[in-house]
Simulated scan of single mutants.
Amino acid sequence: MHFKHLPNELAHCLDPFKTRTGFERAAQTYDEAAVLQREIGQRLIERLDYVRLAPARILDLGCGTGAISQQLFSRYPHAEVIGVDLALAMVTTANTRLLDQPQFHGVNADVQQLPLKDDCAELLISNLMLQWCNDLVTVFQECARVIRPDGLLTFTTFGPDTLYELRQSWQQVDGYTHASQFVDMHDVGDALLAAGFHDPVMDRELITVTYPTVKGLLQDLKAIGANNATLGRHRGLTGKQRLQDFYQAYEAYRLDQGLYPATYEVIYGHAWAPPIKPSAKPERFIPIRVN
């Protein structure tokens, strides 16, 4: 089957290898370009002001270069922080950044299969990682496994209106996917409940970043590792003419000041682990008789 003609639900699925490779390559350029990510992360951290929690261990899921982990030590100086990221280069950068923090441990792992014990942390925090996961229920189930009873999961992710200018401009050029299909806020809440969390609270805000050129937006996305990892992406070179057609289509969004907008729908959410977790299912064995 040609990738251009994949069913919509498959075309927007993310290629884990492509996702990881993008962030591996961006480890050295991420911090300089991640202005929006830092701002959203700061807002996420500030929301902890309203939570009474003194965690002994915190998991920073999708830790990137360690910016969130660094802020967590200022808030919880006696806590142990485990930073988890799919990209080894990001983990290495985070370990270097937090070299003076012996309570920080960087782990290269997939959030869907955490190499951690059950009930090992009181606080799970994740800044702009969930949009890179294909199956939120599976991710939240793994979070529910490693979080302690009454622990808190708090996170940010992007919603469906994110980069709509970019997506609609590319739709004028070809039929390939050029950006992720971000999950609606209500569907994120449903996934939390399906995984066993309770009392989820979700809200959203729109943030618009402006650029003097559309090329500047593309450069920033590449610098933070946010490449197009969808299965329905174009597999060849973009080509000068297709790129020019894209720039021309984006002109429809140019502002009066001559700037080009990039809209981000930011979803904030948190939910609590149940006070008593369901007991683990007993293991079943098939008896084998040896003659």
Rank of each mutant, 00 (worst) to 15 (best):
H2V: 07
P7C: 09
N8P: 10
E9P: 01
E9F: 13
C13P: 02
P16H: 06
R20S: 09
E24W: 09
A26R: 00
A34I: 11
G41Q: 04
Q42L: 15
L44C: 13
I45R: 12
R57P: 03
I58F: 00
I58H: 00
T65V: 08
I68T: 04
L72C: 08
F73C: 12
H78P: 01
A89R: 14
M90F: 08
V91N: 02
T92V: 14
N95E: 15
D100T: 12
Q103Y: 09
D119L: 00
C120H: 00
A121L: 00
S126P: 03
L130D: 01
L130A: 08
V137D: 00
A144M: 14
R148T: 11
P149R: 01
T157Q: 11
Y164V: 13
E165M: 11
L166G: 00
S169I: 13
H178C: 02
Q181F: 03
V183Y: 07
H186T: 07
D187F: 07
V188K: 03
V188N: 06
L192E: 02
L193N: 09
L193F: 12
R204W: 04
T210L: 11
P212V: 11
L217N: 09
D220N: 02
K222H: 10
N227K: 05
N227S: 06
T230L: 13
L231A: 05
R235C: 15
K240Y: 10
R242L: 01
D245S: 14
Y247E: 10
Y247C: 03
A249M: 14
A249E: 13
Y250I: 11
L255W: 05
E265D: 15
G269Q: 06
A271C: 07
W272K: 13
A280L: 03
K281L: 05
E283L: 01
E283S: 00
E283W: 01
P287F: 04
